[in-house]
Amino acid sequence: MIELTRAAYDDIVYRAYKGGEAEICGVLAGEHGTDGDNSVVTETYAAENVAETPEIRYLIDPEEQFELIETVEEAGLDVVGFYHSHPTGPTHPSETDAARATWPNHSYVICALDGYPFVGSWRWRDNEEAFEQETVSVRSER
């Protein structure tokens, strides 16, 4: 399961809308569960999508990704996973998403904008070389 604070969830959805026809992307930070199954996202770190075809792909520049990961760690947080949008597609990972997944037991959150915005999440299981859908919950903030 992945739990997002309301602010983190809203940031992903709003950024996806602002991205228009291009996929947006970034890093998810918070507490990565010790069991590899339950995580809490408290912060999102936006990255520039440098893919050649940002309408159908996302790519975080490796140098920017390294800098974002350092920023997350300096803040005392864990990298929980990554997020991107599918402006015209479903919330499930594409074949390209699966081929590029490299962080075992980390979450890959996808915000689909085809109709009503929906956020789905999948955890990459390296031993199975496949994504496993996980429950997404939004923490109500008081």
Rank of each mutant, 00 (worst) to 15 (best):
Q65V: 00
E52H: 15
L113I: 02
D35C: 14
A99H: 05
Y45W: 08
V50R: 09
A75C: 07
L59R: 09
E74Y: 08
S107P: 00
N38R: 14
D126R: 12
T88G: 09
P93W: 02
A51V: 11
L77G: 05
T91N: 12
W122Y: 12
G89I: 05
T96S: 06
V79Q: 01
L113K: 09
R100Y: 05
Y108D: 04
D61P: 03
Q65H: 15
R100S: 05
S107D: 12
G76N: 07
F66H: 12
P90L: 14
S39E: 06
T96F: 05
W103I: 01
R123N: 11
A130L: 08
T135H: 13
N127Q: 13
E132W: 12
T34V: 11
G120Y: 01
A46W: 02
T53W: 14
E129Q: 13
L113S: 04
I60V: 11
V80A: 03
V80K: 02
T102G: 01
V136L: 06
A46V: 09
R100V: 06
T96N: 04
E95W: 02
A112D: 00
F82G: 05
T102R: 03
E129M: 10
T34F: 13
I60T: 04
G36F: 08
H92V: 13
H84Y: 02
Y58T: 01
H84N: 05
V80E: 01
T53K: 09
F82E: 04
S107I: 06
T91L: 08
D114K: 12
F66L: 12
E95S: 06
P93L: 00
F118P: 00
W124M: 12
Q65I: 06
R100M: 10
Q65G: 11
P62Q: 12
Y108P: 05
A51N: 07
A99D: 10
T88A: 03
H84E: 09
Y45V: 07
Q65P: 02
V80D: 11
R123K: 14
R125D: 06
E70W: 11
S121T: 13
A130F: 08
E73S: 10
T135I: 12
P62N: 07
A101I: 00
E63I: 15
A101G: 01
S94D: 07
W124H: 03
V41H: 08
S107A: 06
D126V: 02
E129F: 14
